[in-house]
């Protein structure tokens, strides 16, 4: 742009370079535009329509879909339940995952640590659906858990946890726990032994060391783990459906219904964007707490 008159050699080189850069980038970003960004735009457009413009139905713009959320109290309940599910899952993952990460970093070494590390991340690369299905065999009435309980206590009543709220939480914790262990491990492993030793030589006891040193220093790991878990959990629909049965109504299942059962695409689109707004809000809030973390992900 700058050297319109008599382009010098470096300018010509840099313009060739710009073309190369563009050529390298266009396939990937073109694909993402076609398959992610344009669809999200289309969905935003749909969320302001009265009805999906198929056949010869006219385009009628309205805010009704968004207002529907505020007009129907049950949707508020459903949204709150989804958030609650997210909080339970994230909280339990933190309670189980941080000690596990600490143990991995401080109580194991060498080959054993590598093997444990691999064992922990392995299930999370296997199909999520298959893992949720596995839980149905364990938790259902007369399932493996009940049968095992009967072997120990023959007179105990069956637990039959399947199709209950705890079943959904168990399945989700199982699905997302590896994220928390991984992110916490990255923080915990960076804590230098000398810091802990210094505190100990100055007379700090183990609880004080945990609260004053370990916990504050593992906060970045806890927060990034919490984001990685909370966001997909509030959007989950397969886990609540399979493990919760009739009681597994979440924002995710309501949105899925709009697209597969009710065919009310504009309402589904509006609900999706309300959920997306919540997700963006969470990213926005946490990127303040964690400067550079989310951006460098």
């Amino acid at each position: 742009m700058a050297t319109r008159i008599a382009p010098s050699l470096p300018a010509r080189l840099s313009s060739r370079r710009a073309w190369t850069t563009a050529g390298l980038l266009i396939p990937a970003y073109g694909w993402l535009t076609l398959a992610v960004f344009l669809p999200l735009g289309a969905m935003l457009f749909f969320s302001f329509l009265k009805a999906a413009p198929f056949g010869d139905r006219p385009l009628v713009f309205t805010f009704d879909q968004y207002l529907a959320f505020f007009r129907r109290p049950y949707l508020f309940d459903v949204a709150w339940r989804s958030i609650e599910l997210g909080l339970w899952t994230t909280g339990l993952c933190a309670l189980i995952g941080l000690p596990a990460a600490l143990a991995l970093a401080r109580a194991t070494r060498g080959r054993a640590r590598q093997v444990l590390f691999l064992l922990i991340i392995l299930p999370f690369w296997t199909n999520g659906l298959v893992r949720i299905f596995s839980w149905t065999i364990v938790l259902r009435e007369g399932g493996v858990l009940d049968q095992a309980l009967h072997l120990v206590l023959p007179s105990a009543p069956g637990l039959s946890l399947l199709y209950s709220y705890p079943a959904i939480v168990i399945g989700l914790v199982h699905a997302y726990l590896p994220y928390m262990i991984l992110t916490c491990y990255l923080s915990v492993a960076a804590i230098e032994d000398s810091v802990v030793e210094a505190a100990r030589s100055l007379g700090a006891r183990t609880p004080a060391i945990f609260w004053k040193i370990i916990l504050p220093l593992s906060l970045p790991g806890l927060v990034s783990g919490a984001i990685l878990i909370f966001v997909p959990v509030i959007g989950s629909f397969m886990e609540p459906r399979i493990l919760g049965g009739r009681i597994g109504v979440t924002m995710g299942t309501v949105i899925e219904d709009q697209f597969t059962q009710a065919f009310n695409w504009p309402l589904g689109a509006a609900l999706s964007f309300i959920m997306l707004a919540v997700v963006l809000l969470i990213f926005g809030l946490t990127s303040r707490i964690l400067p550079g973390r989310v951006a460098s992900f």
């Binding site: 398959a35 289309a42 969905m43 959007g235 995710g252 949105i255 899925e256 697209f259 999706s272 997700v279």
Partner: peptide, 12 residues
């Protein structure tokens, strides 16, 4: 969440 990406792809 994939739910949103997936439904957006369906719509588009």
């Amino acid at each position: 969440p994939w739910l949103i990406t997936g439904t957006a792809m369906l719509v588009f």
